[in-house]
Design a protein around this nucleic acid. Structure first.
Lengths: 326, 326
DNA sequence: AGCCTGTGCACCGTGAAAGCG
DNA sequence: CCGCTTTCACGGTGCACAGGC
């Protein structure tokens, strides 16, 4: 009924607890015969080592924790899954938590931390990175601390591509729809958009073209309906694909055709952007590469280096038919 | 540098370790003055209790683990998020893991288990449920064991609704596309489809209308293109929404119009099904209700009852324009 | 002596029971 | 009875060492 412990196995096998521990850890300190006997008993009793005890003793858990703002949407889930797959190959267990960084990260239950799209004041992140002396990777923040690396998207380049595309579009009356204002990526994209708007449009009215869409397709559906009815804008730069879909929805509800009557571009290349009609022009970051880089940095930090490092991923433009080119 | 422990606090406060422990747990065993002093020191030193030690001692962690097959797609993420939100309100920490059920679930690090879309032979699940003496909820399986509940979708009803809808459609040449064959929901839906196909179509050729789509839109895109070119089928019943989108994609690539030239129905009411054009007729299970029921059962089991229980959620038909009715 | 196999014990941080002035 | 301390166990690890050949 109760969990089997080393002690019980030791009693049955008529050896000491230490011997059982050695045997199950395949230490050479135990003879083959005894080892086999002990292992058999352990298997029979369905023995599972108590991780709490193990961690308490060893301070090393092979457990890595990933923090996301939410499991919802087409982005976070994909990215965590990629990371999970790589860690699994290396016999590491990835745990995901959503919301705030839980206390157990600060204890010895977890070996390291991966932060994706955490939305909070950077001060807290900074504090955590600073006094958490474990490998920590930020994927959507830039925070310099020991044992910390940042593996982030080069958002400026992505925005540049999108502006270039839209500048070749027949539709030029541009509307920029941002995501959650607390999101690092949204902030970076906004900053880059400001820069390239000026460069491409030579106007100072950037702010009047910007709307907050909160990464939510329903919000952009409402916005889109309004603007399309009034003919305010005919080109939409959305900071993620989901919001772009909201514009699609608005367009079709008003019998307008994306790629004909209006242009739409998105961000992230989520799977829907290829499935939807017309295909959505979007910015892609290879999630597998991203995940590999994250895990790579993780083990680099773990093994020795602890200097802060920042790695930028170069995004790629995926051209589809949501933009009618001149 | 190193984590502060009760011991260090005790030394500074010039009291025993036990007193510190009592003080921080607000026990009445300690005088107010000492308590305040100790708390201040703990705060200053940034004390965080070591969960491994706590669990080892108390066998109770306030951590619940959710297992999913993958974080990807529009379904699992939504559901986990709902569950997470409810647990968070109750000061429980939900951890998510993807892949197989990790060892730490079997140790005392985790209080209970929630299994969603785990794909494996049921034998393993049964074994786990049987000798894991913690609250366990299966959301996509029916497994009877102590301290175990099943909170599942009534798939038969959902399939029935979809057949009723398609039987009123102008398109009647029906193609049934299943998901992953290891998925419980896919299996249940297939079983129900077999039943209702016979009822509505009075034919014995069910199996020749069934194709495996693996829950993947690209697979159904290929299937859809093939069938639509050959005019094999003009009504598609997909076991989830993503696959239905693949049919949408195939249709538009062949200049056919969903809801006009063909009918499509899906399952799950993921957010895309309302955003896409035409809207996708689909089966909805209220995820919030589902999550509430799961958490409810969790605490019921935890507090006392340990008899197996099965709760079925009644799904709802969401009618949109992907089916042209007579 | 040296190798092989196995044991005793201190220790991680916590919390509960019992003890004590 | 209050306020605090001592002691112990939770489960597992690995060092230092013991005893036999």
């Amino acid at each position: 009924m109760k969990k089997t412990s080393l002690k019980q196995i030791a009693e049955i096998a008529q050896v000491s607890v230490a011997t059982v521990s050695y045997a199950l850890n395949d230490s050479s300190q135990v003879g083959e015969v005894t080892k086999a006997k002990i292992k058999k008993i352990a298997a029979d009793l369905n023995y599972v080592p108590n991780l709490s005890a193990q961690n308490l003793r060893t301070n090393d858990s092979n457990i890595v924790c990933a923090v996301v703002n939410t499991y919802q949407g087409n982005f976070n889930g994909d990215v965590i899954q990629e990371i999970q797959d790589i860690f699994a190959q290396k016999k590491y267990q990835l745990l995901a938590v959503s919301g705030s960084i839980p206390n157990f990260v600060k204890t010895d239950m977890v070996d390291g931390l991966i932060v994706l799209n955490y939305r909070s004041d950077e001060a807290e992140l900074r504090r955590i990175a600073y006094d958490l002396h474990k490998p920590t990777i930020f994927m959507t923040n830039e925070i310099a601390a020991k044992k910390t690396a940042n593996v982030i998207i080069n958002n400026e380049l992505g925005i540049k591509y999108l502006f270039e595309t839209l500048s070749k579009s027949v539709h030029r009356n541009i509307c920029i729809i941002t995501g959650d204002n607390n999101s690092y990526n949204s902030q970076q994209r906004l900053k880059a958009a400001r820069k390239y708007y000026k460069k491409f449009y030579k106007h100072d009215d950037f702010d009047s073209h910007v709307y907050s869409g909160d990464f939510d397709p329903n919000t952009t559906y409402q916005l889109g309906r309004h603007f399309l009815e009034q003919n305010t804008y005919n080109a939409y730069l959305c900071f993620n694909d989901d919001m772009a879909l909201g514009i699609y929805h608005a367009a079709s509800s008003l019998n307008k055709t994306v790629g004909e009557d209006l242009s739409v571009v998105g961000f992230d290349d989520s799977y829907v952007s290829s499935v939807v009609s017309p295909g959505l022009t979007t910015i892609k970051v290879n999630k597998k590469t991203w995940a590999e880089e994250v895990v790579d940095q993780y083990f680099k930090i773990k093994s020795n280096s602890n200097y802060p490092e920042t790695i930028e991923l170069i995004p790629e433009l995926i051209l589809r038919d949501s933009v009618k080119l001149k």
